[in-house]
């Protein structure tokens, strides 16, 4: 309760400072819109449906790209952890490509796929898959071998060993790998939506992009706030329950 009051007071204070700073009139309202005008924009966009539609389009792209990226990244990550050769080859490839900011995939994707949904998806998958591989690889290596050893003495073999020991033992790294992947997918999609202008769907990134084109600072800031909010909500809804479970069982965060 006390915590909620402190948090609410902090953000209310921030909004108040913003509003007061805008009220002084020291900066042009075109470049520094007041909190109220941003709220007015958000309310309007909500009511005419553009905001909800943008959120829907963006989340749909995000989910598809993320699922593909994770579905490739998790097994490949386990594979790279399984042998020295795999780590030296696939592992270093993943490490190299992970350092490439995902926005750098945009020119490549546009040349290959044109201004299409596929280009967008490609950027998101490329942004996701390498970080999932690296997180999974690292996590799989940190499973204490003693678990498998102890289980084997008790008669656990093959499928039982994988399902009852290796899978639950890998939960901390699975969750951290999936979370890592989510963060990268989100960043990649925003880059893709800002740079790939297409007509098949108008996402949050495009909302941001056209805010710039139209010199509409209230739209730019409003879209940014929605993007932050979605990131926060995704973290709370998708990952916080798993992290609480891990914390309860393992007694620490994610591994």
């Amino acid at each position: 309760m006390r915590r909620a009051v402190v948090v609410t007071a902090f953000f209310a204070g921030l909004l108040l400072i913003w509003e007061l700073a805008a009220e002084t009139g020291w900066w042009s309202p075109v470049l520094f819109p007041s909190a109220v005008s941003v709220a007015r924009y958000l309310w309007g966009a909500m009511n005419d449906g553009t905001l909800l539609e943008a959120i829907r389009v963006t989340l749909q792209r995000l989910l598809l790209g993320y699922v593909i990226g994770a579905a490739i990244g998790l097994p490949v990550g386990v594979l790279t952890s399984s042998s020295k050769i795999m780590d030296d080859t696939l592992g270093s490839l993943a490490l190299g490509l992970q350092t490439l900011p995902s926005v750098c995939w945009v020119p490549f994707a546009v040349l290959w796929f044109g201004q299409t949904e596929s280009a967008m998806l490609f950027v998101v998958v490329m942004g996701t898959v390498w970080s999932v591989i690296i997180a999974t690889n690292h996590g799989a290596r940190t499973i204490p071998p003693i678990y498998a050893k102890a289980a084997r003495t008790m008669g656990s073999r093959r499928l039982h060993l994988w399902m009852m020991v290796m899978l639950p033992a890998s939960l901390p790294f699975l969750v951290s790998g999936m979370k890592q992947g989510w963060a990268f997918a989100w960043r990649s999609l925003m880059a893709a939506e800002i740079f790939v202008t297409i007509l098949t769907g108008f996402g949050l990134g495009q909302l941001l992009h056209y805010g710039r084109e139209l010199n509409a600072m209230d739209q730019v800031i409003g879209a940014m706030m929605v993007i932050v909010l979605i990131g926060l909500l995704a973290d709370r809804i998708l990952f916080a329950p798993w992290e609480r479970f891990l914390h309860r069982r393992w007694g620490m965060d994610g591994g």
Binding site: I146, K149, P168, W250
Partner: peptide, 10 residues
């Protein structure tokens, strides 16, 4: 074993 070998998920 000497090392902690209990399964933390159980």
């Amino acid at each position: 074993f000497q090392e902690p070998s209990l399964f933390p998920w159980l």
